[in-house]
Design a protein around this nucleic acid. Structure first.
Lengths: 158, 158
DNA sequence: CTCATAATGACAATAATATTGTCATTATGA
DNA sequence: TCATAATGACAATATTATTGTCATTATGAG
């Protein structure tokens, strides 16, 4: 095993984050043209597909976004019939939202199209390389949470 | 060496990109408070620090941003005296911009502060791990360029 | 050299995303 | 019971990014 990485190596990785974020967003957007689904709406569908019925604030926490932002996306998704609301046993005013059959079908098609592209890249790398990338990026996410004034974080004593 | 990565592994990495981008931007921003320098202006300074005197369109290409965006940032940086213009032998109307002494000093201080944070993360990983991460993310950047309608790309025949 | 084409600065408008604020209502927990 | 936190709803704003236009200057093909 080689020694600790140089700071400059990680810095070069960080410099790639903004451009790659823009390009991924564009790629996702390109596959959504004509569906009436935005990138944000797709992100909410992703959470619901993975976690099942979820409240608006919890979706926000999963996506590191403010609940106000999520509320708008959820409203749009409900209008399109892609998600539906269900009683929340834990909170009378805050319903749970889950994908409808239509929503699940459409999201599956979207994901299948995306995976076709992702597979082209993933096959060029070993499992270990992708895993390392994920761990490093995840560490960045954790470390730089210190500057986050997350409006959704559960408030303890303060 | 293990075999090719699963698509799902790379997908999980991709899901981290947006949140980590936001957090890194916030972290950068936090260190710029009080300097009058924005994240965008800092990005331009980074290009000039690395590449030396550069024209506005070339800065845009380096950052994958439209020249119109760069022009605004460059105007602001010039007003602050952080960059200065120099004649461009290759183009009469398009001057080259370079960091002034003041700009170079300030950028150096900014980078030093950033590196202190980055070092805390980089020391947790091997050089090979960070290199793998960089290669994977770079491959994503390359691959998803297909959806890019880059307004700055040099036009060939079309 | 001439001329069509591309690049550039400048200005403008818009869109998309993200952030912040507020308030009435409902839950939660001490 | 009561102070505190969470939530939906509505609103405003900020930031970033994108797109459009036009006059001027370069560039390169012929």
């Amino acid at each position: 095993m080689s020694g600790a990485a140089e700071t400059s190596e990680l810095y070069e990785l960080i410099r790639l984050i903004r451009p790659v974020h823009r390009r991924l967003a564009r790629a996702v957007e390109a596959k959504l043209v004509g569906t009436g689904i935005s990138v944000g709406m797709r992100a909410v569908m992703e959470v619901l597909d993975e976690a099942g019925a979820t409240s608006v604030p919890d979706i926000g926490r999963a996506l590191f976004l403010a609940r106000q932002q999520i509320q708008l996306l959820v409203n749009d998704l409900e209008k399109l019939g892609l998600i539906g609301r269900h009683p929340n046993p834990a909170h009378k005013r805050s319903p749970l939202f889950a994908l409808t059959d239509s929503g699940r079908t459409q999201f599956g098609e979207i994901r299948a199209g995306e995976d076709a592209d992702i597979a082209l890249v993933s096959k060029r790398f070993s499992s270990a390389e992708v895993a390392a990338a994920q761990q490093v990026v995840c560490a960045l996410l954790d470390h730089f949470a210190e500057f986050e004034d997350d409006p959704n974080r559960p408030r303890g004593l303060e």
